[in-house]
Design a binder for these strands. Structure first.
Lengths: 212, 212
DNA sequence: TTCCATACATACTAGTCGGTATGTTGATCA
DNA sequence: TGATCAACATACCGACTAGTATGTATGGAA
């Protein structure tokens, strides 16, 4: 007489799949192992998801997208100095860093590097949420330009793309080195790059115009 | 009466393994497929390598390390302005870019992200050649500082670590977006960051001192 | 010419994998 | 209360996997 809860069953599967993928990669993620983690049976799994691939897609589209929004997008959406907001987000990222994040790496980056050349379905879904992130950064920088926080001569979309690449690269390096310090140093260096994007203060601006 | 050539057999296996890994990842790389690519038999493979893992290790230690040295280390080892040398290396990197490099990604980055949390043997070997790269960059920047090309106030080792992370991140982003332009833009933005590392010209230096 | 280690070749095993066929149970609504 | 269908459960399949057991051929040294 176990009471049924299909929504919970589905969520359990997603979460267990996420963990299994984090630990072994998607390709080596075992459905049997996911079932063992949850206590769900194979029949139930295939009732909720038509294939392993679709289960993987759902992990990307539901879990990872939500995590990215909470962690990296929402914090830079309000107004004010976007450079400070991004620095804060990075700072909070480091502080709230679980050991698993260093040990197993950024789930988004992991899956991108493992799967994007192997399966177009994964690539497009991953690219989609990366685009969302990049667009949010780009818009924040645009706002920053309009409000005078950010230099007017930078291409905000290109900078945004570079920031995403650098953050992912930094997380990847940290995982490979198994070192929080590598991550901290990299984000610090990235912060110093961000500082070069600040609009010059009025007196600096007039001086550099005089020099030109 | 087929004449034997064990060295060639071994090299054939390494190359085929490299290609198979590039296309499917290490974990899904099939020994049978590697054998089919080469025409070598399983007995021969296990004569040259004790296990799939050791074959993978050899690909890292022999093929990938050599490629990294030729592509990214040697070009920045001679003297002169290291910032220009690195920019040149990146430019040449983009120019000599094979379509496979965009399609399948940087082999070093791929393997790092796929394997470093899964197998310590891979992680250490990969980390070792990444360290080699980082050290070469760091030394080049040190030389640049001594010769007056590079600002004296930067920590060269931290910048070097960041450069590696950014380049790997850029290659990863480009693979995920399946776009050469993403790579070009990122390396361009990275170049603009490199420019901020230049030592100020003498007159600039005196002016900024006067301002302080 | 004999001998023997290296360099292969073939056939096979034990296990894992994603997926399916077929059955049973539980909740909801007429 | 009975019917109906979603929500499971179990047993199984064929394909594929890394690895091995065992045998054979080659080429150089003695």
């Amino acid at each position: 007489m176990t009471t049924r809860d299909p929504a919970k069953t589905r969520q359990d599967l997603l979460l267990a799949a996420y963990e299994e993928i984090q630990q072994h990669g998607y390709q080596k993620a075992s459905l049997d192992s996911i079932l063992a983690r949850t206590g769900v049976t194979k029949g139930a799994l295939y009732h909720h998801f038509p294939s392993k691939k679709e289960l993987g897609y759902a992990v990307v589209e539901e879990l990872m997208r939500q995590w990215l929004r909470d962690m990296w997008i929402r914090p830079i959406e309000q107004g004010g100095d976007p450079i400070e907001a991004l620095k804060d987000a990075m700072q909070r990222g480091v502080e709230s860093l679980t050991p698993e994040m260093i040990r197993f790496g950024c789930p988004l980056n992991n899956l991108c590097q493992e799967m994007s050349q192997i399966d177009e379905g994964f690539r497009l879904r991953l690219q989609h949420i990366v685009d969302e992130w990049t667009a949010a950064l780009s818009e924040a920088l645009d706002r920053g330009q309009r409000e005078g926080f950010v230099r007017a001569d930078i291409k905000t979309d290109k900078v945004a793309t570079f920031l995403v690449a650098s953050i992912e690269g930094s997380l990847g390096s940290a995982k490979n080195a198994q070192s929080v310090d590598v991550l901290k140093d990299n984000l610090e260096t990235l912060s110093s790059y961000l500082d070069t994007l600040r609009a010059p203060s009025p007196q600096d601006a007039s001086r550099s115009q005089a020099a030109a």
